[in-house]
Every structure is written in structure tokens, then in C-alpha cells.
Computed example of a mutant assay.
Amino acid sequence: MAQHLNGVAPGSTATLTKPALELKDIDASYGTTAVLRKVSLKVEPAAVTALIGPNGAGKTTSLRVASGLMKPTGGTVLLDGEDITSTGPARRAKRGMCHVPEGRGIYRNLTVKENLLMQANELSAQESIELATSVFPRLGERLSQKAGTLSGGEQQMLALSAAYVASPRLVLVDEPSLGLAPIIVDVVFEFLETLRDKGVALLLVDQYALRTLSIADQAYVLRRGEVVYGGDAKTLLEGNMFEQYIGEAS
């Protein structure tokens, strides 16, 4: 039985605004294998929501359903309170949703500059480049370089820059620190906090669960495709709550 599934911690006052994103009773399968079972979660406007759990729990699948890359077999996806379950990724992107997938979703055969221009929404070429390089200065030194030849950290910076130059209202981020050196992980989390401070809503999946919880407002824990906790992120850092739901610190 999940705790606090209304997304509001005990003793707090429920928000009167509609969630930026809501998954309601989502079922999802790969073939005959059920991956998500009645998953419900909310991402509030201008807040960070952490989605954590062991490998294979269904975190990536949840993000794919939310962004429209995968159709659920049951349940509803709501964006700003409107049912978008049947709409595709392109329409969701036009409405302000940005999905940064695991594995650095970049155009490897294009230059850094060309990638930035592909990511831009209504910005001019110069504006998109200036925005991206203001948060990731190293990209400014690599504008003419093919994206596929960048280091792993630089490729992740380029992938994350989409969450800046596209001016989204909602960003889904899947494992942004995977395979990165600690110093680059610091850069990644600083960037995520920058997005939060700009009023962007975030749904964040990352291997560093403790660090993710430290910047999150709300958290959901998935286990075997089901939500087993939903509520205040900081509560999971108290006492033995983290070990109870997640296991050893990560």
C-alpha cells in the first residue's frame, strides 16, 4: 500500500493549482510482460519530483509513458489537467514538455551548434547558443565539433541543454548522471537546480537517490512496477525511511 498518494505530505495544505503532470492508474507492458501496475503520481508546477527505486522498477517506462514515447495499456496521462493520453511526443513537446532520455539523446553526426539549433524552440540561433553556453560554458568551446566525438560529460551537457533552450515548462530527466565523473555530476545537479529556480517543473530519475531527494519537493518510490511511497521527499531522508523503501544508501 503506497503512502500519501495524493502527493501531499501529512499536515500540509493541498495546492489549488492543477499539477503540471499527472499519471493516473497507469498500466504499461512490453509484450506480455507487465511493467507498470496502476502507477499514479503528480508533478506540481515549479517543483522537483523524484522518481526512485531499484533497477527494473519501471522508472524509465514511467517517463516514456509521460512523454508519449510509449502508450499505456491502461490509465490516463494529464498535462495541466488535460487528458493527453492519446497524443504523441511532438504535440506534448509543443505544449512545453521536454524529455531528456537516458543515454544522451543527441544527434551524434551533427555539430554541437547544429544540435543546439535543433533543440531551440522560438529562440534565434544566437539566443539558443548564448543560453546553452551560459550554463555549460564548455559547449561554447565545442560548437564546431561533432557531438559524437564529445566526452561523455560533454554529451550529457548537450543533451540537458535542450531543457534550457527549448524553454519548457515541464522536464522529464532520466539518469542524467549515469556514467559521469563526480565533478560532472556536480555540474549536472547544479543545472537541475537552475531549472528548478527558473520555475520549471521536473520529474527526475537518477541513480544517486539521496542526492536526488535532497533537491526534490515530492518523491515516489517504485518497486516492481508499483508505487509503494508517494509524499514529501525529505521524509524519506528521516530515520530509517530510506532503508525501508530503497535499501542501502546510494
Rank of each mutant, 00 (worst) to 15 (best):
A57C: 04
V48T: 13
E44I: 01
I52N: 08
Y30P: 12
N6Q: 06
T49Y: 01
V35K: 01
G31T: 07
K38N: 12
L16C: 02
L41Q: 10
S29G: 00
N55M: 11
A47S: 15
T15L: 12
P19G: 13
K38I: 00
A50V: 06
K59F: 03
G58V: 05
V39N: 05
S40L: 08
V48P: 02
V39T: 06
K38P: 01
V35G: 04
L51G: 06
P45Y: 10
E22A: 15
L41N: 10
A34N: 03
D27L: 01
L36P: 05
A57L: 00
V8W: 15
V43N: 05
T32L: 12
A9D: 10
T61R: 02
D27F: 14
T32C: 02
V8Y: 14
L23D: 06
L23T: 09
V39M: 03
T17P: 03
T49S: 14
G56M: 05
E22L: 10
D25F: 03
L41T: 04
A57K: 02
N55D: 09
E22V: 06
L23S: 08
A34H: 01
V48C: 14
L51Y: 01
L41C: 08
K59R: 05
T61D: 00
E44A: 12
D27Q: 13
S12M: 14
E22Y: 07
S40N: 13
G31D: 07
P54N: 09
T33G: 00
P45T: 10
A34F: 00
I26K: 09
A47R: 15
T15D: 12
Y30A: 15
P45D: 05
G53Y: 00
K38Y: 04
P54Q: 15
K38A: 13
S29T: 00
Y30H: 14
T49A: 14
A14Y: 02
G31Q: 05
V35I: 14
K42L: 08
D25C: 14
A20E: 12
V43F: 10
G58D: 03
K24G: 04
K24Q: 15
T60E: 03
A9Y: 07
G7Q: 11
I52C: 10
L51R: 01
L21T: 07
P19M: 12
T17Q: 15
V35M: 02
P54D: 11
G53K: 09
A20N: 07
A47Y: 05
S40H: 03
V8E: 13
D27T: 03
P19H: 07
T60P: 04
L36H: 05
I52M: 14
L41D: 13
T15N: 09
I52E: 03
V8D: 13
D25W: 07
E22T: 11
V39Y: 00
R37G: 01
S12G: 04
A46N: 14
A14G: 10
T17E: 14
G56S: 04
L16A: 15
L36W: 01
L16E: 14
T61A: 01
E22G: 12
S40F: 10
T13F: 08
G11Q: 05
A50M: 05
S29N: 11
L41Y: 10
I26S: 11
L36G: 03
P19N: 11
A50S: 11
